[in-house]
Structure formats: C-alpha cells, structure tokens
Amino acid sequence: MKALVCSAFGPIADLRPGTLPDPVPGEGQVLIEVKAASVNFPDALIVQGRYQVRPELPFAPGAEAAGVVRALGPGVQGFSVGDTVVASTGHGAFAELCLAQAAKVSRLPQGMDFEHGAAFVLTYGTSLHALQQVGRLQAGETLLVLGAAGGVGLAAIEIGRALGARVIAAASSEEKLALCRRSGADATIDYTQPEWRRRVEALTDGQGADVVYDAVGGVHAEPALRATAWRGRYLVVGFAAGEIPRLPLNLALLKERQILGVFWGEAMRRDPAQHEANMAQLGRWFEQGLLRPAITERVPLDHAAAAIQRLADRQAMGKLVVLPGADA
C-alpha cells in the first residue's frame, strides 16, 4: 500500500512517500481504508522519536483517520465491513490502509463527510475530555484558550460554547484571532503583546479565567496561570511552543488554583466507556450544528511531510487534512 514512511527516527524532512505491507487486523483490531487523515502535533514528535510511544520501524505516522471498514480482527463486535467510521490510530493513518483498536473506532456522525471526520476524533476528543472530565467547566464560567487557532484550540472554543461558558481565545496574530472569532470566541487576545494577562483580568472584572486550556506551554504558561481565578483550574494539555515551563507553585497556593494534567490517550485506554460516551456527545453536537472542524488545508499523501513540518513550526491554523487517494 502507499504510505508516508518513517524509516528512522529523525527530522520530519526525512519522511518519504513509499510503500508498506498491507496491515492485517489482529485481536480486537479494525482494518480501515483511509479516505482522509489529519495532521496533529504528536505526528511531529513521534517521527522524531520524541513521543511517549515509539512504533516499530518502518511505520506511517498519522494519529486519526476517517474511512471505510474493510476487515475485522478476531473478537471485534459492533462493526461490519463497509461501515463508515472515524478512529484514533496512534500512528498509521497517512496510508491507504490503517489499523485501529475497536475501542478507539466510532461511527462517522450523521451528515459528516470523511474530511471533517478525519479532523474530529483527536482534537475534539481531547478538548471535551479536558474541559468536561478534567476541568469540570460549568455553564456561566469563563474559559481562556491558549493556542486557540490550532486544532485542539478551535475545538476547545466550540466545546466551551456548547457547555455554556464564555470563551476568551488567545493566539499570536490577527489572522489567527479572526479565525477564533469565526469559531465562536466571545473575546480575543494577542498573547505576543506585553502584559497580555492584564487583558484577561479586564475582560473578567479582575477575577481571572475559571478554566485555562493550555496546549502551548513555554513563556505563555506563567502569565496564563497568573490570569487564573480563585480556585480556577489550569489544564496542562501540551507544549506546542517546544518548551516545558517551570511554574512557581506559590501561584497555585495564593488563589487555591489547581494545576491539572490532561492525557486523553491514557484516559481513553483506562475508561473506554467514557470515551464512547464523549464521542456520542460530540456527534450529537455536530448534528445540531454546534461543532464543525475548521479545515484550512487539504493535501495529498506526497505533501504530508511538509504539512507536518508547517504544524510543528506553528505556521498552520485549524486542521490540515491528508487525502491518501488524491493526486499530488
């Protein structure tokens, strides 16, 4: 099968289009013909050997896909050949065929095409788990989203609104902030500006944000924690800035703030029933018109490595979708 091949852990630029053997589903696995896959930040880490999972070489990156079930491994129930599905794959989605654990496969929501399905599972699954299970975001609270123009950030904006929160989006350019407003942000902040946290305080009558969703880290983490309200919840989602921050813990003490880690993949493994319930909720919200992934680029498999590099360099907005069947 055609695939984007990682033959050795190293620079993203070393990825090459090539071929890999057709995968065969094992116990509890589903074989999916990939119609669309999307680029996520872990793709950039996994090919460099910097992720918590290191697949056996050679492999195809790609952590989420949408497509058609082509075969079922032993023990799989609830799916049939020909079903249209979305899946969290971990890796392997930048190929014509990929495998996924049945517990991480869901039916394509009604009215959703493959391209939007490919942009749905990881970003929306992560953001709903972060905001609902970990952050316990309540209607009427204020949510601050850092890196808000990225895939998980835009998902967090839409989910925050669906949960009844007021959403403040923080990003690094007016173009990105405009996208955040189109996705439903109530207010926006350019966090490249000095003392940007004062803007959060001004927008919240001096109280700060009840929940902070931080997928960026780096130099933005400390001011974001300082902008968190009394007994607010600061969610550690990721480190797209490339630097893991060192936070002064007195900032947690002074306002009884909570610093909470978000590890969606492990939470999904430990509680697949909760993941299934979350995906069903997201599907209902999509059908109600409350959610719609913002796809900004569609690329063929031959251009997938460049798309991963743009995301790693923080030069992309929204979701970048890879189409294995498209011509270069």
Rank of each mutant, 00 (worst) to 15 (best):
C6T: 13
A8I: 02
F9C: 01
D14H: 14
R16F: 02
P17Q: 03
G18W: 10
P21W: 06
V24G: 00
G28Y: 07
G28P: 07
I32Y: 01
A36F: 09
A36M: 10
A37F: 02
N40P: 09
L45Q: 13
L45D: 06
L45T: 07
G49M: 11
Q52H: 14
E56D: 14
G62F: 01
G73S: 07
G75P: 09
V76L: 10
Q77M: 06
Q77R: 14
F79H: 07
G82I: 11
G92L: 08
A93L: 03
A93M: 10
A95G: 05
A95R: 04
E96Y: 00
Q101C: 03
K104L: 11
V105K: 09
V105H: 08
S106E: 12
S106C: 13
R107F: 15
M112I: 06
D113C: 11
E115V: 13
G117Y: 06
A119T: 12
L122G: 02
T123A: 15
Y124N: 05
T126C: 01
Q132D: 14
G135L: 12
L137E: 08
A139N: 09
A139E: 13
L144R: 07
L144M: 07
R161F: 04
R166I: 09
K176Y: 07
L177D: 09
L179N: 04
R182I: 02
G184I: 12
R197W: 12
V200E: 04
E201H: 13
L203M: 14
D205I: 00
G208L: 05
A209D: 06
A209P: 10
V216Y: 03
G217D: 05
A221I: 05
P223Y: 00
L225Y: 06
Y234K: 03
V237F: 08
F239P: 03
A240K: 08
A241M: 06
R246K: 13
R246L: 13
L249P: 12
K255R: 15
Q258F: 04
Q258D: 08
I259E: 01
V262I: 07
W264S: 09
G265A: 15
G265F: 03
A273L: 15
H275Y: 15
L282E: 03
R284T: 14
T296C: 03
V299G: 03
P300A: 12
H303Q: 15
H303W: 03
R310Q: 15
R310I: 08
A312M: 10
Q315G: 13
A316F: 06
K319Y: 02
K319W: 02
V322L: 02
P324R: 02
G325R: 14
A326L: 14
